[in-house]
Amino acid sequence: MKLTRMTQIGGLAAASLLALSACGASNEGGASNEGGGEPAGGGEETAAEDWADCTPGAESADTTGMEADATTDITIGAFNGWDESFAAAHLTKHVLEEDGYTVDVQAFEAAPGFTGVAQGDIDFLMDAWLPLTHADYIEQYGEDLEAQGCWYNNAKLTIAVNEDSPAQSIADLAEMGDEYGNRIVGIEPGAGLTKTTQESAIPTYGLEDYEFVVSSTPAMLSELQSAVDSGDNIAVTLWRPHWAYDAFPVRDLEDPEGAMGGAEVIYNFSRTGFTEENPKVSQLLKNLVLDDEHLSSLENVMFSEEGHGGENNDAAVDEWVADNQDFIDDWKAGALSGA
């Protein structure tokens, strides 16, 4: 379907803090609040809620009986530094190449990525975060894009702890400082996650007595590894999706006040005319559903030091698929939404 232009929705009160600067292991300060602007009015909030209301796999259908499209050269855009972008793109590349397509995954910053799709130079991208992070690109290019379903609906900022530690909620930390060394280990100073923690979570939950360690994503992961190895409790700023949820025994603290913001949805968008010209690929995109378990395990193989370290994404996907062939079969059959 061709999208109608939507009004700019970058504000949306406290939820605007969710415009992520950290969506992958290396995008520590890469994205800002790209929506920008002032808090939206009532009509604009309705547009935002429409984008948030997407069920991954809702348009699923069996593709196993479909022939390959007449056009088999496919270009997928992925966003530099956004791990889930490359995970989804190279996983899709693997499946399409099994069916005889020739697929090229190209890396872009978000702005030229959306521009390339809108101009028809890229067939599709798989990492549009809505209703906030990429709202301005949909506002700008919506008439030149086709929605191809959403595949993940739990993209959010978190404060996480080792799974065997006592705190269940961020609110618990105020009375459990000794358990966590009175520290929260963060990432880069320019990250949206850092800003949200400093300006929202800490004052909301009365954590001013905690030392908020602003460092880097690798340093945070190193401290997390050390704490897990030594059996110490630790609280870190984290985000979903991230491979740390597969690599370490960690869990999110509940956020009863919503200080870290709500969850976003990750969409596919293609150039106009793609659905008609490539109906099989279009349907496969609509079939894709990645939950936290599958996505974090895939990213762990692709990007962790124990995996491929981001150096050979295709080999990492091959390795992951060898252990998850049922996922691929269900994807092609349109059965992931009910799996």
Rank of each mutant, 00 (worst) to 15 (best):
T7H: 13
T204E: 11
V281A: 13
N233W: 04
N154R: 10
G24Y: 02
S297P: 07
K332H: 10
A78G: 10
F108T: 04
G57S: 14
V103I: 12
T204L: 06
N313I: 12
G10Y: 00
G231N: 10
T204H: 12
A107M: 13
V250W: 02
Y180G: 03
P39Y: 03
V236A: 04
A315L: 06
P279R: 12
N300L: 05
I184S: 00
E84M: 12
W320C: 05
A47R: 01
I122R: 00
D69H: 07
M260L: 15
L125Y: 08
M302T: 05
L12H: 04
S270Q: 09
S337T: 13
A78C: 09
G338I: 06
N268T: 14
E139P: 05
V289P: 01
A107F: 06
D69Y: 05
P56A: 12
H308Q: 14
F86A: 04
D62H: 06
L130K: 11
T197W: 00
A19V: 05
Q225R: 09
V321A: 03
G42F: 09
H294I: 06
T92H: 08
G307T: 03
T133R: 04
T194V: 10
V105A: 11
Q140L: 15
S215H: 01
K286S: 06
S26F: 09
T194C: 06
L12Q: 03
E163W: 07
P279I: 14
W82G: 00
K332P: 05
P56L: 13
E163I: 08
F114D: 02
S16P: 02
V95A: 15
S270P: 06
E49Q: 15
Q119E: 14
C54R: 02
T7I: 12
